[in-house]
């Protein structure tokens, strides 16, 4: 099974992520998003950060979590490559993200993502496969 596809929409760009469970789909959505920012083959697993968020809905959880990953990139340059989901409930997600700091000398800059949005956001299960559609403002 493919991890994700890039969603093509007029002004912006999105990720269609798949998983055999919700955790997998979340993980692939994040890796998909990172792959829009830079080529992940050049990213090494050098350090880890903990990201936990709470929200009142699954959609809210996904958007808030991705926005936290975007924040850690935009403020500190951190790019994740491996995502460990340590805890996941309806209202809470606890994760450890491993990667390294972006270095313009070694890493290619692709898209500058401003935020994850609710625009056409979808989290659903189809024939045992979870699918997430999320659009980013760039």
């Amino acid at each position: 099974m493919k991890a994700f596809d890039v969603l093509d929409i007029s002004g912006d760009v999105g990720i269609m992520a798949y998983g055999k469970n919700l955790e997998d789909a979340f993980r692939n959505a994040a890796v998909g998003m990172y792959s829009l920012i830079t080529d992940l083959d050049a990213i090494e697993e050098k350090r880890s950060i903990d990201i936990s968020v709470e929200s009142h809905s699954m959609e809210g959880l996904l958007v808030a979590w991705l926005n936290d990953l975007i924040f850690h990139f935009d403020a500190y340059g951190f790019i994740g490559k491996r995502i460990d989901i340590q805890e996941m409930g309806d209202n809470k997600i606890k994760t450890m993200v491993t990667g390294e700091d972006f270095d313009a000398e070694r890493h290619e800059g692709k898209l500058l993502i401003k935020a994850a949005t609710y625009h056409q956001l979808k989290i659903e299960k189809k024939d045992d496969i979870w699918e997430i559609d999320v659009i980013f403002d760039i």
Partner: peptide, 8 residues
């Protein structure tokens, strides 16, 4: 205003 998506 864009007419083409970024990937297109």
């Amino acid at each position: 205003g864009r007419v083409m998506s970024r990937h297109q």
